[in-house]
């Protein structure tokens, strides 16, 4: 039976053929004119990005080949000196490791939870739908400064989490959550989950609205339970949206700054610090080294690009 259920959406004739091939071209002239229309649609948005993002990025690329302090910069010899230098940078290695720990643990849990929550909220028979939806979304509306403050207070040694844990018997003595490497990282991960799960849920909720209810009904008629319907019917149709959120979250995590800066300030001993936090320190806290900072930022760019390409390869079914 699962096989049949699984087959339902992907064999629905219209969809696959639509994805795999272009609409049959009746006349190439018309085709070309439509393609031109397409270009006019996307040019304004693209131009803004090219001017506001790529121009500065090119400047940053040039900067990454320069060394010196302050504005006293000159081209490095060899040109790739800043990149070579990273191999000996212990703090960079540490922050890179920490960032990947956040990525690997937090992103799958968050997206999984967001998917399940969105799916539960999409149930037409669910009661108090608006209430649940609002409650779960609300954390994304809170500013970063304040949420760091609230989490820090809750996880303080004499804070609420320890009080509750001891009252319920989970803990024998207060834990110094923010004072130890792994528990500090865990607090950051919890903070990220709290703040961003509802945010990702919005994308799934929007995506779910575009799924035709009839496919879900069909699965039900075929006798599939909610779990199977979710897995074999809903998820495949949400794939474009899952891909989007996965790329977004990967990018967001590799550029994670605020949580590291505000919640733990990188501590204890730099062990919860992210690469972007380090990048900020190199640029604005320490004696400014913008050439090196630009080189680090290009490493982040390359890492995100590789991971995004991999995700697109796995998740994008159109071509």
């Amino acid at each position: 039976m699962p096989a049949e259920v699984g087959a339902t959406p992907s064999t629905s004739p219209g969809k696959t053929s639509r994805r795999r091939s272009r609409p049959p071209s009746t006349s190439t002239g018309l085709e070309r004119r439509r393609s031109l229309t397409g270009w006019t649609f996307l040019i304004p948005a693209s131009l803004v990005i090219l001017l506001m993002s790529f121009w500065p990025m090119i400047q940053a690329a040039i900067l990454s080949l320069q060394t010196g302090r302050g504005r006293d910069l000159s081209f490095a010899d060899p040109l790739w000196l800043n990149y070579q230098r990273m191999l000996d940078d212990e703090i960079l290695k540490q922050t890179l490791t920490t960032t990947f720990i956040y990525l690997i643990i937090q992103v799958p849990i968050m997206l999984g939870m967001a998917l399940i929550l969105a799916n539960l909220l999409n149930d037409p028979n669910l009661r108090f739908k608006g209430l649940w939806r609002t409650a779960i979304f609300l954390p994304s509306a809170v500013g970063l400064v304040s949420y760091a403050l609230v989490f820090r207070t809750m996880f303080a040694t004499d804070g609420l989490v320890n009080d509750i844990g001891m009252a319920l018997g989970f803990l024998d003595s207060p834990v110094n959550w923010l004072g130890q490497t792994w528990s500090a990282r865990m607090v950051i991960i919890l903070g990220l989950l709290w703040r961003w799960t509802g945010y990702n849920m919005i994308f799934y909720l929007a995506g779910l609205q575009t799924i035709e209810r009839s496919t879900l009904e069909a699965a039900k008629i075929d006798g599939a339970g909610p779990a199977k319907t979710f897995w074999y019917v809903t998820i495949p149709q949400l794939k474009p949206m899952i891909l989007l959120t996965a790329i977004m979250s990967t990018n967001g995590t590799l550029q994670l700054f605020d949580e590291s800066y505000n919640l733990t300030n990188g501590g204890p001993g730099n062990t919860s610090m992210t690469i972007s936090h380090y990048l900020y320190n190199v640029s604005f806290r320490n004696s400014p080294n913008f050439g090196y900072a630009a080189a680090i930022s290009y490493v982040i760019l390359i890492l995100v690009a590789i991971l995004a390409a991999a995700q697109i390869k796995i998740g994008d079914t159109r071509d």
């Binding site: 403050l149 820090r152 207070t153 303080a156 040694t157 110094n176 923010l178 004072g179 733990t264 300030n265 501590g267």
Partner: peptide, 11 residues
């Protein structure tokens, strides 16, 4: 006694 943040310090 060590605490973890400025807010806790003031507290």
């Amino acid at each position: 006694v060590e605490v973890n943040s400025w807010d806790e310090y003031i507290n």
